[in-house]
Amino acid sequence: NAKWGAVVPADRDLDKNTPFEDATHYNNFYEFGTGKSDPSKRAGSLETQPWSVVIDGEVGNGGRFALEDIVKPSQLQERIYRLRCVEAWSMVIPWLGIPLSEVIKRAEPTSKAKYVKFETLVRPEQMPGQDSSFALIDWPYTEGLRMDEAMHPLAILGLGMYGRELPNQNGAPFRLIVPWKYGFKSIKSIVRISLVEQQPVNSWQAIAPDEYGFYANVNPNVDHPRWSQATERRLPNSLFNPNIIDTRMFNGYADEVGSLYAGMDLRKQF
């Protein structure tokens, strides 16, 4: 009983859905290795049932909840979103999910709740990347949103894609999708959602604060120190058609989310 077509890309020619095979075999999910094909090769062993999520911090209705109980009161919606990776490639993916705002409202945030912090599962025996002694990420993988970002209707918690359940390599069973930010903000396999007063430090910011900020809004005018963000390679591409297109402010969602950042210096708060 999904609600269809809630958000469809404006440019139907450019924003064609990425083939399922590519969206599920070209992933960054460092818990399963740093190669793009590592997650699809290694994530199969992750047990995603049963799955529970801790909701805590500045909330009136916190605790550990079975995933079904978090999802049940909401209606699944289909959202076709562009996904822009900070590495300058992009895809278009039809997600199934529920508004993040609904889950937050049910947790009854207190007046002190200023940010939302998310954490990924830590289970090294099923997530070989967490077993690497050379890993620079301090597990669990952590992400965060400002409260108004989290309450924005475009931010969803994903449970499926392409009309089916999320494959493990795409963050099963429960992940965040924030389409106007670089892909790494859309944290996968979430086990904890905390409402907090202080701005959390996200994992990539902790590793390289000069390269990755807290906001990580898609912004063609602010380069990554190692490459330009002005353009992106829309995948799949081929050797002689790299399919390089212009990157749009807030990944093309500026009309919807631009007001969240009014008055901010996006060069400093990148």
Binding site: T18, P19, D22, H25, Y26, K36, S37, W89, R233, L235, P236, N237, S238, L239, P242
Partner: peptide, 8 residues
Amino acid sequence: GPEPGRYL
């Protein structure tokens, strides 16, 4: 994969 240039 979907990005053969990067693969090479």
